[in-house]
Computed example of a mutant assay.
Amino acid sequence: MKIVISGGGTGGHIYPALALIKEIKRHEPDSQVLYIGTVRGLEADLVPKEGIPFKSVYITGFKRSLSFENVKTIVRFIKAARRARKLIKQFAPDAVVGTGGYVCGPVVYAASSLRIPTLIHEQNVIPGLTNKFLSRYATRIAVSFGGSSAYFPREKTVITGNPRATEVAMADRRAGLLSLGIPQGKKHVLIVGGSRGARAINDAVLNLIPQLPGYPDYHFIYVTGDVHYKKVMTVIEEQGKIPDNITVRPFIYNMPEVLAGTDLIVNRAGASFLAEITSLGLPSILIPSPYVTNNHQEKNARWLEEQGAASVILETELTSERLLDEIDSILSDSGKDAGMRKAARSLGQPEAAELVYKELKTITGT
């Protein structure tokens, strides 16, 4: 099988694409994949590191308000679609897959114009503008949540879950901790602010670091995001000796393995992340980003909270004291911890990548 995959901007669009590629390779080791993204997106860094051929197009997203910039974006879309069409014709794929982000727009549209089977994957309950636009051209629409189906043509739409869930569910717990040099025998708390980090979460964590020696049974893994790392480390060093029970990293490339070795996760509430933690049955403290379209992160977070799988702290309510108290209240209460794990696991979809792969096989007739 030859597949073109496109997805970009944030890890929430890229990681499901990478997980699907691994699933395709697991079934068909000789398959060929070409990834089309943008040079400015996170995919330009992550995809080549996985040894996957990468090509780029230049495109920007639409503004939701009336703006002359949207006229420029239309021109860029047309140019990007022409380049994508050329790349696709050269590669001659059996199908083209879009996993979200505005780069998928010209790529999937170009494939459709060439009458190549296409599949788009929607991670969030509320779809983004790009996938809403592409839904009229796509051969198949795969969604992570049943609630997304109402936004798409029923005859094209299937509920598969998020492919990232499969990759994380199969990860090696011990390998993740060893890769970071983290000691065994403690309860591990992973704190991440999304693929690029989050200032509000960083500020709260910086204020609680001096208190960490008082929690020797916990080891904290703190991922700052590349753009925040230097500033964060400067502040930590100014505080004095770095506590022994914290590991600070700008970014983690083997996140599935590290997640598998985690006992509690603190993060935003992006859809791919929720797929990851539910596939592992991890309790979580969710701090939804208030800066996303349609406030979908808070809706995602509240859904998990209602099921008993997560605790939610809004960014406006976030303090170091509140965060540390919430962490301790979960990890120090075995009944609460076990209940959240059971609830999270009941929501997981570890077979998601397999289901998306089967849909690809269906639309290509192979």
Rank of each mutant, 00 (worst) to 15 (best):
residue 304 L to P: 04
residue 251 F to S: 06
residue 355 L to C: 05
residue 338 A to E: 07
residue 309 A to W: 02
residue 342 K to A: 15
residue 284 S to W: 01
residue 257 E to Y: 13
residue 328 D to E: 10
residue 312 V to D: 00
residue 261 G to P: 05
residue 343 A to M: 04
residue 349 Q to K: 07
residue 313 I to C: 03
residue 243 P to M: 10
residue 264 L to F: 02
residue 297 Q to P: 12
residue 315 E to T: 10
residue 250 P to I: 09
residue 252 I to L: 10
residue 270 G to V: 00
residue 326 E to A: 04
residue 284 S to Y: 02
residue 343 A to D: 03
residue 306 E to A: 12
residue 320 S to T: 13
residue 323 L to M: 11
residue 349 Q to C: 00
residue 291 Y to D: 13
residue 295 N to H: 14
residue 332 S to C: 14
residue 270 G to E: 00
residue 291 Y to H: 13
residue 294 N to Q: 15
residue 276 E to N: 11
residue 339 G to V: 03
residue 281 G to P: 09
residue 303 W to H: 11
residue 330 I to W: 01
residue 247 T to I: 11
residue 281 G to N: 13
residue 359 E to D: 03
residue 333 D to S: 14
residue 325 D to K: 14
residue 267 N to C: 13
residue 355 L to E: 05
residue 301 A to K: 06
residue 333 D to V: 12
residue 328 D to G: 06
residue 271 A to N: 07
residue 319 T to Y: 13
residue 271 A to C: 07
residue 257 E to F: 09
residue 288 P to E: 05
residue 335 G to N: 15
residue 260 A to Q: 03
residue 253 Y to G: 09
residue 257 E to R: 12
residue 331 L to E: 11
residue 285 I to K: 01
residue 291 Y to L: 13
residue 314 L to Q: 09
residue 270 G to Y: 02
residue 306 E to L: 00
residue 327 I to E: 00
residue 327 I to G: 04
residue 301 A to Q: 10
residue 342 K to M: 05
residue 292 V to T: 13
residue 344 A to N: 02
residue 244 D to K: 15
residue 350 P to Q: 06
residue 295 N to P: 14
residue 300 N to C: 01
residue 306 E to P: 06
residue 252 I to M: 10
residue 289 S to P: 04
residue 287 I to C: 06
residue 288 P to V: 02
residue 341 R to Q: 14
residue 265 I to W: 02
residue 300 N to H: 04
residue 312 V to K: 01
residue 332 S to K: 15
residue 329 S to Q: 11
residue 286 L to Y: 06
residue 252 I to R: 08
residue 265 I to C: 02
residue 277 I to S: 02
residue 328 D to L: 04
residue 319 T to G: 12
residue 295 N to F: 07
residue 283 P to N: 11
residue 251 F to Q: 05
residue 335 G to S: 15
residue 273 F to R: 01
residue 297 Q to T: 07
residue 284 S to L: 04
residue 300 N to V: 02
residue 307 Q to G: 07
residue 303 W to L: 14
residue 261 G to M: 10
residue 328 D to R: 15
residue 330 I to F: 03
residue 312 V to G: 03
residue 250 P to V: 11
residue 282 L to F: 09
residue 300 N to G: 01
residue 356 V to C: 01
residue 326 E to C: 06
residue 317 E to R: 09
residue 314 L to E: 11
residue 249 R to C: 12
residue 328 D to Q: 12
residue 348 G to N: 05
residue 354 E to F: 01
residue 338 A to L: 10
residue 257 E to L: 08
residue 282 L to R: 11
residue 251 F to Y: 13
